[in-house]
Every structure is written in C-alpha cells, then in structure tokens.
Amino acid sequence: MDGAVKKYFKLIVDNEGMESGSHADKEGVKDELQRWPLFGLSVGSFLQVINMEQQTCLLEVYRSADQQGHFSIVEGVLCKAICGDREGEDAAMEMISWENVRLNIKQILNTSGIERNIEKNLMLLLMESSRRRDEAEENNQIQESKVETEDTEEEELLVRDVERAQLDACLKILTKDMGDSLISGSIICIQSAKVLASYNIKPEAAALFNSITDYFRNAFAGGALGGGLGDHYVLDLKEKQTLVVLILGEYQWAIVFNNAKCSLGLFRNIIMPKVVKTFNEMNL
C-alpha cells in the first residue's frame, strides 16, 4: 500500500515508552500488561471507532502471552491482520471474537510497506464474527442441555432402581404371607407396561394382564359401564386359580393364586389390605 499518511492518530492513549517490544518480555507479565494500556472496550468497538474517525494506525491486541496480534488500519480501512500463525480475515475474526483483551495503538508513519490481506469491509467482518459467536453459544447451550439431560436420566435410573428394590420387597412380603397358594405375582407400571417386579411369571404374561386392564379402562371410560374402572378386578380361572388385579395409582399388581388353598375372601380381607398398606407406605 502506498501513499503518505493523511490523518494521524488522535485517540488518547498512554503508550509512551512502549515502543520497545522486547522490554515487556524482560519485565514479565506486569510489564506486558503495561504495554497494552487500553482495556474495557471490545476489539470490534475499537475498530468501529477507528473506522469512523478514519484513522491510520496499528492496533495491537493482547489476550494472553500466546494470544496476541495486530490490525493495520489505513484511513479507517482495515487492511491487514496478523494473529500468531494466522493472517488476513481469519486472523481478524479470531481477534474480534476475543473478550477481555488489552489494546495498544501505534502510529503508522508510512503505509507503503503494508501488504493488504483483508478485502472484506469491517462491517461484514463484524457481522460474520457475531454470527459465529451466536452459533458457538448455541452449540454450547445444546451441549449443556445434553449434559443436563444425561444427568436427569441418571437420576431417574437411580430412582427407578430404588423403586424396584422396594417393589421386590413388597412381593417378598406377599410370598411370605401367601405361602404355596401364591402362583405368581407381578407389579407393572401401567403407562409404560414395564414389569418392575415379578414372582414366578413371564414378562409376556404380566404384559397380558396389563392389556386386559387397558381394555377395561377404555371400555369403562366411555361411560356406558358407570364411573370408570375401580381399583381392582377379579378373574376366575380354570384349574382352581384366581387372578386379582389391583390398580394402585400408576402401578398394577397382578396376583394369581390357588383358590383351593387361599379363598378369595381371605385374599380380599386379609392379604389385599396388607398389600395396599405396604404399597402406600412406600410413597412411590
């Protein structure tokens, strides 16, 4: 780039005695920070001010010891950017995206040696940088959301494990009370049809009882059969077996027993209240 400097640097900066680049390295970090005395404004804002004032200057940007670079601006036009190994628009975008930077402004006395490596105007670069920042934030939010979801799933699994242990304990009480009259027992989550605890029953059979409950619920929901399915139903089965299904909130207990060894009366008046009480005490 050729042509003499038409306008000189007018911004108020305290950069006296900071012309020597090697001085800061020798004096350590404190001195380095003194070398870039401007802070509090973003790189983009500074570039816009320089652009509006049509200044010719070198804007040095410092983020950390290994993250620094500079912009060359001639009469307000951003001509060149260098940031580490990066050059041109890539370097400019990188530095514009930095936050909490320190800046320094130096005069450019002769612009003829500046090789332009940025063609886009400043506004386009700022807009592109803004778009990239939004994208990055969005991605971060998605990542955070994923992490939160995973945490929630883990917590839910833990709660389910505790519930299953409690439900297993409930079935053990039932087994103990009913002895050999108990043929099978299962506890199912009605909505998901998942078998949460079982005794001597295949999952398919437990799912079968759940499908019967679903059928009754739908049939009674129509209103023709009264005010909806109540809290239990009883199926008399062949081979002296009885199936009692208890509906306790979102759970279903399906208990099959030998009615020659345990009468339905005994089950409904002694066993069933105990099952309901134990279940309610679990506070699931």
Binding site: A205, H232, Y233, V234, L235
Partner: peptide, 22 residues
C-alpha cells in the same frame, strides 16, 4: 379376555368381577 388368555397356561373360568368407581 378369552383370546388374550390363549397365550396363558390357564383359561378364563366361571366368572369375572369388575370393581367400578363409585
């Protein structure tokens, strides 16, 4: 119920009783 119980070892017996809300 009869169709569903075909996959179960035992068939429906003499009756079934349904508790209705109310």
């Amino acid at each position: 119920i009869s169709n569903a119980m075909k996959t179960y070892p035992t068939e429906l017996g003499q009756y079934y009783y349904i508790d209705v809300a109310g």
